[in-house]
Simulated assay, not measured.
Amino acid sequence: MGFEGEVWRVCSGVEPVGEILIDDADFPWLSGRFTPGEAYAAVQALFDRELALSERDDDWAMWEEAYDEIRRRVSLSSPQGPVPEFLLHIQGDRAWFRWSDEPFEEQ
């Protein structure tokens, strides 16, 4: 699929949260080396909390609330431009995500 070597960008408004250099494509998931940007410190705790909650099986509502805050605070862009929907995890110098070219349907 040709994703390896691409650089995807994570932003908070116009501020750079970081870049992801794709080194593994297991579609629909892409993963790569995460290089933090200036705005990462402001959202790092959100990603830490989201990951911790995703490892629990007892309260998915709390995870959804945590992830909704991430979605409000950051955007994800492919080399071709912003993607409307994504599920992004960042831990240390690694990031992995999946995305959609179309908005998800509300349930």
Rank of each mutant, 00 (worst) to 15 (best):
S12E: 12
A42F: 03
S100V: 02
M1H: 10
R94Y: 01
P79N: 02
W63P: 00
M1W: 02
A45K: 14
P84Y: 09
I20E: 04
F47N: 04
L76V: 14
E85I: 00
G5V: 05
G2T: 11
W63D: 00
P36Q: 09
F27G: 00
D48W: 01
I20Q: 08
P36A: 13
E19K: 11
D48S: 08
L76A: 09
S78Y: 02
L53Y: 01
W96E: 13
F27R: 08
S75M: 04
F34I: 09
L51G: 05
L46W: 07
M1N: 06
G2D: 14
R98S: 15
R94T: 08
L51I: 03
E50S: 14
P103R: 15
L76P: 06
M62E: 13
E38H: 12
R49V: 02
F27V: 03
F3A: 14
Q80K: 12
Y67N: 12
R71Y: 03
R9V: 13
E85W: 15
E69V: 12
A66R: 02
Q44I: 00
A61V: 04
F34N: 09
L53C: 01
E69F: 01
S31D: 06
E6A: 13
F27L: 14
D101N: 09
W8A: 09
L87G: 02
E4A: 10
I70N: 05
E15H: 13
D68N: 13
Q80M: 07
L76M: 06
W60C: 00
